[in-house]
Amino acid sequence: MTVFACARCGAVLTAPVTQIALPVHAHHTYGHDLLPALMDPGTYAVDPEPSGPPWRPWSEIAVEEAEARGIFAPVHALSFGAPGAIVVAPGDTRGTVLIPERCDGYCMGLDGRDGPNLACARCGQEVATRIDDCSYWQAVWLVPHAVRRLIADGPARRTVDWETLAQLPGTPPIEHPGGWSPRWEAAIGAALAHLLAASAGMPVAVPDGLAMGAFGRVLDALLPPGPPAKRAALVGPGLPAVDPVPDIALVPRHPQTGEVWQPSHTAQTVPLAADVWRHLAFPHEGLPLPVSGRMPDGVLRDEPLPRHPWGSFRPGSTVFLHTLARLPAVRQPWLRKIYDQVNDHPYARPF
């Protein structure tokens, strides 16, 4: 277990927390809603990329400099701030106070536009930025150079093995009262970038059902028409072997370690957030069976009615672009054309 303390005076700033992988939706904004906390209680994650000012526009960055940073397609601007920002749930912070003159936001809360807005309550050092405005995941981002890690008493959180992970419930794709889950939009957007790169520009067949709804319409719009030249399939712990071996394996990414599950065969892998992968691999819609007495678990109910979406699924374009810009394959002309098309019109269908 770890606690983070003020680098200046040593005051403890967080509850004991355990490191997990940075969620794929960490920088994904969504609609005009108040979103929940990005991190589960008792966890933290580290963003390996630089964040915060100074920023430099793409026009001032040489291609070689960008590629050394792992960026292979144009972005609006790049941060040249410190890497390694640490994110925790707002409820896991301790001993901090708001900096009143830095509490601006767009609508319903704080968006961090003015830089760090939390200070150490003991010495006044700027230590973190709290974000809780609409469209943003609620989070506290600790400034890397302003805090230091300390070992905390208590048992470390156990790493869940793949077999146990496959048995956990997945994240439903639809939220009340009928909107698609922002976690799904982000996860599918990131996986779509990898899936396009694995396609080599050829049509891809994806599994029927929810996977077709998530990927099929977008692939049809972005890839050339014609009979599928490659086949994608869900592969991972708890699933039977796929025969014949698919060209592309949609596999889970471990939420704690960030490890991507590796199949025994040689198919190209496309990582997918484990909670979304589980729902695709093991859908649980309930059984439409007549019953008497108390309704048992697992039976499709008519009250409340099953959730149905307002419209077709649309993956998150910002996460798609963020992921695709960091894949070397985007330098291929056909994929760069797709990137530029979406970058110029990020909210046009099918996004």
Rank of each mutant, 00 (worst) to 15 (best):
M1S: 15
V3N: 08
V3S: 14
F4L: 15
R8W: 01
R8H: 06
G10H: 08
G10E: 14
G10T: 12
L13C: 01
L13Y: 00
A15P: 00
A15S: 10
A15V: 09
V17L: 12
T18E: 13
I20W: 01
A21K: 04
A21L: 04
V24F: 00
V24R: 04
V24M: 04
H25C: 03
H25L: 04
A26R: 03
H27G: 01
H27I: 00
Y30S: 15
Y30K: 05
G31R: 15
H32P: 03
H32V: 12
H32W: 13
D33Q: 15
D33K: 12
L35N: 06
L35A: 09
A37G: 10
M39G: 01
P41L: 14
G42V: 11
Y44A: 10
A45E: 01
A45L: 00
V46G: 05
V46T: 14
V46N: 10
P48N: 10
P50L: 05
P50F: 00
G52P: 09
W58D: 13
W58K: 09
E60F: 01
A62G: 14
A62E: 13
A62C: 07
V63H: 12
E64Y: 01
E67S: 08
A68D: 11
A68R: 12
I71R: 05
F72K: 06
A73H: 07
A73L: 11
P74F: 07
S79K: 05
S79N: 07
S79E: 02
S79M: 04
F80H: 14
F80V: 05
G81L: 02
